[in-house]
Design a binder for these strands. Structure first.
Lengths: 249, 249
DNA sequence: GCCGGCTTAAACGTATACAATGAAGCCCAA
DNA sequence: TTGGGCTTCATTGTATACGTTTAAGCCGGC
């Protein structure tokens, strides 16, 4: 626990500052979903860094709901591997292990390349322009130095792409993988290098627009490999340093 | 809502009949996990059929915990697509749509075939014998007419296989897909035909033991195709009959 | 006789209270 | 001065109570 980051104000985009709204049922599930997305976004955009503790009381107060709702949200985030729930210690933003990082990227390699064919076949002109828009905004954010925005847009690009495959199950899985990748970038990424080359996504769209599923798949493979290669996954000190190994030599 | 199945006694394997155990903290998380697995198994083994309602009060009483814990478990099951949570109507075992069925099998085709290579490379003799044991027990159950056991063992086979790939993320995903496949079988499967041919799994092991990842992948592809082909996925009546379509003609 | 509104009850959604546990700080003794 | 044990506090885990909503049953009017 080297960092002492604790729910910085900037992590909460919602404008309402702990408005009670108690006794009124109001929206209910919608509100919870909004809170979920707010926290999820904060994690994906690196405004909440891996290791940051997420105390139930604090979150409940910030969002103006009771701990019950917060717990539900935290459990959902935990099932998506975005936060880690330690039995009596509470929740914290997941700090992905090196192994997890490798697994996630291997999975992306398999799945994201695998759907390129379907995507190329079913993509419409409207889809193309939407993807181009995302890619454009991503490059703009990158150039403006807005890392948070760029990271989120990059993930959004991959997710939208996956959705075009028409397979909701695979799209959902890829969405989870992208979220986790964002966490992995936060831990193992090098500052100044966001992984995604600026024009990779545009080239990918070119392949798909031309209906070249095979080429798109190969390109996506190289793209993901490039991101992974840009990381520094050098099994740094484990959370519990192996004293035996250290002192026995 | 054609069936009126409501938590049949046979759905609960646990021996304790609503033992209160109140006031004692006891195990806590372990207990919840056990309850989760009990319900999950009941769904996978078709002792709880799709559409069956899962009332919180009833479950809380059966397992001797409060609704709080039950809600947590139901939400977890919902995120795995095993139960469907309708906002003010409660939980029920998911009835997969035809589209969902196709998506799940397409995903399995992509992912399970994709990991065969890693599996073939890293499989040990112990792994082989464990898989053979599962396959044997599956055939035995099938021959004895114990459908529930056979279904569960079939899923277990695929999951164990995936775990041998060494990629926990992919293995987890495949596990979810297998659980959902069990639900799909319950809805679209034909009685007497469990989908899996008796000796398919054994042949698959043969390929893997020989280190033929390529052949294993192809075989797995055919295996999954065969299961899917054995289903009757003929978009039957939707839950909300399309009156416009019916009467406009 | 049938349709529509009202009443009642059952089930979910949320908050709050209480219990339990682990961690940190403090005091005392060596 | 330091180390160990004890006390206290902070935080999570669980249950329960209450509000809300929906569905079904009943009654009255048309």
């Amino acid at each position: 626990m080297t960092e002492h980051q604790q729910l910085p104000d900037s992590a909460v985009t919602d404008s309402e500052p702990a408005k009670p709204r108690r006794g009124k049922n109001g929206d209910g599930a919608e509100r919870h979903d909004a809170i979920y997305r707010t926290i999820s976004d904060a994690i994906i955009e690196h405004r909440l860094r891996p290791g940051a503790r997420l105390r139930e009381d604090a979150l409940a107060e910030v969002f103006g709901v009771s701990r019950t709702g917060i717990r539900k949200i935290l459990q959902r985030l935990a099932l998506e591997h975005l936060v880690t729930l330690t039995p009596r210690r509470g929740a914290s933003v997941t700090r992905p292990s090196a192994e997890e990082a490798r697994d996630v990227f291997a999975a992306r390699q398999l799945v994201e390349c695998g759907v390129m064919d379907s995507v190329a076949r079913s993509m419409t002109a409207a889809d193309v322009s939407e993807l181009r828009d995302i890619a454009l905004r991503e490059r703009t954010a990158l150039r403006a130095g807005e890392q948070s925005t760029a990271i989120k847009l990059s993930a959004e690009f991959h997710v939208r792409l996956a959705q075009l495959s028409g397979n909701a199950t695979l799209a959902e899985f890829i969405g989870r993988l992208c979220s986790r990748s964002s966490l992995i970038l936060a831990v193992y990424g090098n500052p100044g290098n966001l992984g995604c080359e600026s024009h990779d996504h545009d080239e990918l769209i070119d392949c798909l627009e031309a209906g070249k599923g095979e080429r798109a798949s190969a390109f996506m493979g190289r793209h993901l490999k490039a991101i992974e290669a840009s990381l520094s996954i050098d099994v740094e000190e484990e959370e519990t340093p192996d004293l035996h190994r250290i002192f026995s030599l």
